[in-house]
Design a protein around this nucleic acid. Structure first.
Ligand SMILES: NC(=O)c1ccc[n+]([C@@H]2O[C@H](COP(=O)([O-])OP(=O)(O)OC[C@H]3O[C@@H](n4cnc5c(N)ncnc54)[C@H](O)[C@@H]3O)[C@@H](O)[C@H]2O)c1
Ligand SMILES: NC(=O)c1ccc[n+]([C@@H]2O[C@H](COP(=O)([O-])OP(=O)(O)OC[C@H]3O[C@@H](n4cnc5c(N)ncnc54)[C@H](O)[C@@H]3O)[C@@H](O)[C@H]2O)c1
Lengths: 225, 225
DNA sequence: AGATAATTGTGAAATAAATAACGATAAAAA
DNA sequence: TTTTTATCGTTATTTATTTCACAATTATCT
């Protein structure tokens, strides 16, 4: 059995990956043929060195005096994120948020197709959200098999989220997009991305707190002098 | 003019702040009187050293052999994030997502009160979302003044987001919670928190890509041997 | 009361990430 | 052509964050 460990895993650092996503978004909006690290930096709010460093994780190279070819870079990022491959997804929880998500056309551009919506509430089952009729929970297994579903979106109250996660895992789902404000416990090979909006709310509140403190302080300083 | 620069800013590092938010969420769910760094770590998915290090940015101290007093710690975090102070908020964009947000009762626990909803679509103006009737854009100034609104939520399509941000800023808003997938350009003293769901979608897609690569690789390795 | 065990707080070491520095290169100007 | 200029890729340096290690402290056990 020969060299098995020299296969470098070329893992992209998390902060870099987050910025690469922003570059990707930017390149989709840009008209020009070339773009410099400086311009990318300006438009996403970082510095050119950072951009160049980040792009070393990619194959695409820039040209001195010209910059990066927008289309080439865009395509490499698309591949990195696999947005061209359509991934089938189911959503559990046909409530307010589930409704918004199912009706959102923007996910298509990212290769996400919601193929079914599930809920446990008998009153919701059979009703329509967009084109999709809400299905009962016991249909999950069938749909997952039939459509080779890879991802599940959890849009149920936090109290039910773990329970739903376990159902999804038991039916073979390997990626979960979790909107419930709770940490899901899942097997190692299942990947969870949390979208906890209340967490970013705390960022906003914290900022207001700091600001208030600063104002107080400057008042006190004014008094002292 | 005396020492003005020795006032240490005691800035909490961003990664720490992000974890503190998770600790806060956890402490709200916990029943027991005390909790150890080890238990916090387990339940949010990090290690005990990290937890203890993070908590050095707070005043609350633990007791050897006992852990941290849940209530004390919870309250200090509440204060750090100002969740006890109610902040008045307006929302612009009475669409699918706006609807979900206005109907979400969970924000109350974080001291956020949505006091008005605005839209530019004449067909939506006057209709109700929950208790709130949708108001025309020209009323923003009045409402902001009257209720001392500090934060604006942007729930309009990305094409309109910058325009709306500028209106909000011009009316005195100092914090923006932006759901549109675009970077807003605002004055320095205005704080923007982006909630770009399509970005976390990319995390999920990227994970699937990596996974697929790994599977391919292991197949190739199997062939070779 | 003294020994033992659990758990903290923190400084030191290791790792990761960001920034700076700069030689190399391609295009544009002279 | 040669020179100048903009911009890149990469290595070195600095800064930030995490992990490690361990003395100090408090509760529990004998
Ligand atoms: N609405 C928002 O703006 C918002 C904001 C932040 C976070 N969230 C989170 O998103 C999640 C959904 O929020 P929402 O406002 O859509 O809630 P909702 O109450 O409107 O909808 C929840 C839906 O889940 C279904 N459900 C409950 N338990 C279930 C189970 N065990 N199996 C299957 N279906 C089940 C309910 O029947 C209901 O249709 C919640 O966890 C919430 O905390 C929502
Ligand atoms: N719905 C989702 O699940 C979802 C998911 C990810 C991101 N988003 C983002 O959130 C934002 C809102 O999405 P949505 O699905 O609610 O869209 P939507 O089309 O349902 O609603 C948008 C609302 O904004 C109003 N509007 C448009 N331009 C305006 C302006 N200049 N001033 C005031 N109001 C204006 C429209 O009249 C409409 O009521 C978008 O930027 C979208 O990309 C939504």
């Amino acid at each position: 059995m020969p060299d098995n460990q020299d296969r470098e895993p070329i893992v992209i650092p998390k902060p870099t990956l987050d910025r690469l996503k922003l570059y990707h978004r930017l390149l989709n909006e840009v008209e020009q043929k070339h773009i410099s690290s400086e311009e990318i930096a300006q438009r996403i709010g970082t510095n050119a060195e950072q951009v160049r460093k980040d792009l070393t994780f990619l194959k695409t190279m820039g040209k001195p005096k010209v910059g990066y070819d927008v289309e080439t870079l865009r395509q490499e990022l698309e591949e990195l994120f696999g947005v061209k491959k359509t991934t089938k997804v189911i959503l559990v929880g046909a409530g307010h948020l589930g409704n918004a998500l199912v009706n959102y056309p923007g996910f298509e551009n990212y290769g996400i197709e919601i193929v079914a919506v599930f809920d446990k509430d008998p009153k919701k089952i059979g009703s329509f959200i967009g084109e999709l009729s809400v299905l009962p929970m016991q249909d999950i297994g069938r749909v997952v098999k039939r459509f080779h579903v890879e991802i599940g979106i959890i849009c149920v109250p936090k109290e039910s989220a773990q329970e739903v996660a376990e159902i999804l895992v038991s039916k073979g789902i390997k990626g979960i997009w979790n909107f419930a404000p709770t940490r899901l416990i899942v097997p190692n090979d299942v990947f969870v991305v949390d979208e906890d909006m209340t967490q970013s709310l705390l960022t906003l509140k914290h900022y207001l707190e700091i600001k208030k403190k600063k104002i107080q302080e400057s008042h006190q300083n004014a008094e002292k002098s």
